[in-house]
Amino acid sequence: MLEIVGLEGMTVEEVNKEIANGAKFVVFLYCFSIIILSFKRSSKIYFIKAGESTLKKSLLFILISLFFGWWGIPWGIIYTVQCLFTNLRGGKDMTAQVIAALRQT
C-alpha cells in the first residue's frame, strides 16, 4: 500500500474533489554525498491540496541537498542542482502514477 503524507482523515470523495480542483501528489528530491559517492533519492509521496504551497514541505529536502549533497564530485554537484531545481518548482508531480496505482488496488 502507498504511504502518502497529507491524506490523514480524508475520505475518497474529499480526495477526488481536491484533485478535480487542482490538488496533486508530489515527491521531493534530495541528495547526499559520502566522500566520493553521491546518492539521489526521493521523499515519501505528499498530497498537496489545490492552492497549497509546497515550500514548507520541501524545505527539509532542500536543506539536506544544500548541506550534504554537493560534496561528491562531479555527481554531488549535478544532483544537488537537479534536486534544488525540482523542489523549488514544487516537486516532481506523481499524480498520474498514484491514481493509476490506487485504481489497481
Score class of each variant (00 low, 15 high):
3 E>P: 04
51 G>F: 04
67 F>N: 02
102 L>W: 01
18 E>P: 02
105 T>V: 11
54 T>G: 10
49 K>C: 03
57 K>P: 00
20 A>Q: 15
17 K>W: 01
26 V>C: 11
29 L>N: 12
50 A>Q: 06
57 K>H: 15
74 P>S: 06
53 S>E: 13
3 E>S: 13
103 R>T: 09
44 K>V: 07
54 T>Q: 02
62 I>K: 05
93 D>S: 09
104 Q>H: 10
60 L>E: 11
84 L>M: 08
53 S>H: 01
74 P>K: 07
23 A>M: 05
55 L>M: 14
6 G>M: 09
60 L>H: 08
43 S>A: 11
44 K>D: 10
4 I>P: 12
97 Q>S: 07
92 K>Q: 14
98 V>H: 12
14 E>A: 07
34 I>S: 04
70 W>N: 01
60 L>T: 04
12 V>D: 14
34 I>P: 00
100 A>V: 00
80 T>W: 02
21 N>C: 02
24 K>S: 13
96 A>R: 09
93 D>Q: 09
18 E>L: 07
42 S>T: 15
73 I>N: 04
21 N>F: 02
72 G>F: 03
13 E>K: 11
45 I>N: 00
71 W>L: 15
6 G>C: 10
94 M>S: 06
71 W>E: 11
87 N>S: 05
86 T>H: 02
29 L>R: 12
77 I>V: 15
79 Y>C: 05
55 L>A: 15
12 V>T: 05
33 S>M: 02
19 I>H: 04
59 L>C: 02
41 R>I: 01
80 T>F: 03
44 K>M: 08
59 L>A: 14
1 M>A: 11
7 L>D: 04
84 L>C: 04
20 A>M: 13
74 P>L: 13
4 I>R: 05
89 R>P: 02
13 E>Y: 07
90 G>F: 01
51 G>Q: 08
89 R>K: 14
41 R>G: 01
68 F>L: 07
12 V>M: 10
12 V>R: 14
85 F>P: 00
46 Y>S: 07
8 E>Q: 15
95 T>G: 07
83 C>S: 09
32 F>E: 05
12 V>K: 13
36 I>C: 08
85 F>W: 14
47 F>C: 12
60 L>F: 10
22 G>T: 05
37 L>R: 11
39 F>V: 14
52 E>L: 07
24 K>H: 06
97 Q>G: 03
18 E>M: 08
34 I>E: 10
47 F>S: 11
42 S>I: 07
51 G>P: 12
53 S>P: 10
49 K>Q: 12
49 K>E: 14
52 E>K: 11
10 M>W: 06
16 N>S: 13
32 F>H: 13
101 A>C: 00
94 M>F: 12
52 E>T: 09
57 K>Q: 15
42 S>H: 13
91 G>V: 06
63 L>G: 00
37 L>Y: 14
95 T>M: 10
46 Y>W: 10
56 K>Q: 13
35 I>S: 02
47 F>P: 07
42 S>K: 15
72 G>H: 01
78 I>N: 04
31 C>S: 15
78 I>Y: 13
48 I>P: 09
83 C>I: 12
37 L>N: 11
8 E>F: 09
64 I>D: 03
